[in-house]
Design a protein around this nucleic acid. Structure first.
Length: 357
DNA sequence: AAAGCGGGGAA
DNA sequence: TTCCCAGCTTT
């Protein structure tokens, strides 16, 4: 007798029918395009955060042609606040490639998906399983946690040997039928039951076979990433504000921190802000006030931002500055649809009013 | 304050 | 192949 799936998958599917999430926005009209967008948004971001972004994004770009035709600025604007902006740039670039290279047809095989920017093995497998019911394993953070606990894997999942072993296990548990349900089920279990801290093992359909549960090891598994110290870096944000309360923003380089987003000009903390302002923009500030420094956290370092507010009179120079496409005077969200780096948006909302302005 | 999360690209 | 990078939310 051949069974269509192992005990792991069978228990998971039974659980899913009762407890799985079936009304997420990307589960209505479950087209490959919508599943693709949702999977990219979900890569480093939780469901609750993604939902409003997803709704806005697919309302504006309902299909791959609409996305491909968009300006990058508008794509980044709709992504602004979600983080990891290379996801948005890659999604946009991939949409353009699908239109030019596949005449707008989304791929049906996993290699074609994986050759698109921003799509690796797990994301490609998830898209095909969820939207077309094809048999491919996935291995995202939730699945790694479930498999490490179930199989009692005590090494860190980010280690390459551990990762290989997890892919083999993921493949072996993947059933031959009900691929969309199974794929959603294992993600849902990780997100709602087999959570990192205080997992709800009493509600888990897999506990009878779960090594970590049977050995009371759910606190130790999954093993945490080996941690490294995060150095502190400092930078200055130059906030040039003219007599109409408009603020000068620069487009950041396409790669690196906040790549492609708009932000304040930066200068090293050793430099003189007023002189930098004069040298780079030909504007002589009438005063400089040092605003409260703030810290912004990244994975590998912390950034101390020291904002300096410089009041300038821009009339004579505005045109010359604007000739460069990478600079603009920002008058508020109503007049510009741009992607702003998160701390830039916060600082803009907290600026003190200009005296006599 | 610290940890988590998937993939790209440089080394 | 192996590092290093990215930005927000949750705890």
């Amino acid at each position: 007798m051949t069974q269509s799936c192992d005990a792991f998958a069978a228990a998971l599917l039974v659980w899913f029918d009762q407890n799985g999430r079936k009304h997420l926005p990307w589960q209505k009209m479950r087209t490959p395009y919508r599943v693709w967008v949702s999977e990219i948004m979900l890569q480093q971001t939780q469901v609750g955060t993604v939902i409003p972004y997803f709704e806005r994004f697919v309302a504006r770009f309902p299909d791959v042609e609409a996305l491909a035709a968009a300006e990058q600025d508008e794509v980044l604007h709709l992504w602004s606040g979600l983080g990891y902006y290379s996801r948005a740039r890659n999604l946009h670039a991939a949409a353009r490639r699908v239109v030019t290279e596949h005449r707008g047809k989304l791929p049906t095989d996993i290699d074609a998906w994986q050759s698109l920017p921003g799509i690796g093995r797990s994301t490609a497998g998830a898209i095909l399983a969820l939207s077309r019911g094809k048999r491919h394993p996935i291995l995202d953070g939730n699945v790694k946690r479930v498999l490490c606990r179930y199989h009692g894997i005590e090494t860190w999942a980010g280690e390459s040997e551990t990762g290989k072993a997890l892919w083999v296990l993921a493949e072996s548990h993947t059933p031959k039928r009900r691929l969309a349900a199974y794929t959603q089920a294992i993600m849902d279990l990780g997100a709602t039951v087999c959570v990192r801290q205080q997992p709800r093992c009493r509600a888990c359909p897999l506990r009878r076979g779960c090594s970590a549960f049977l050995n009371r090891a759910t606190d130790a598994i999954p093993a945490p990433r080996p941690k490294k110290p995060r150095p502190l870096r400092r930078t200055r944000f130059l906030i040039l504000r003219d007599q109409d309360q408009a603020v000068l923003l620069e487009r950041r380089p396409p790669s690196g921190v906040w790549g492609g987003l708009w932000g304040f000009p930066e200068c090293p903390v050793e430099a003189d802000p007023a002189r930098t302002c004069a040298e780079r923009f030909g504007l002589k500030p009438s005063g400089a006030s040092y605003l409260k420094p703030r810290q912004h956290g990244f994975t590998h370092f912390r950034l101390q931002i020291e904002p300096v507010l410089l009041d300038v009179n821009a009339d004579a120079n505005a045109d010359r500055i604007m000739e460069a496409r990478s600079v603009l005077w920002y008058k508020g969200a109503s007049s510009n649809r741009l992607g702003l780096a998160a701390p830039v948006g916060r600082i803009l909302g907290e600026l003190p009013p200009r005296a006599g302005g």
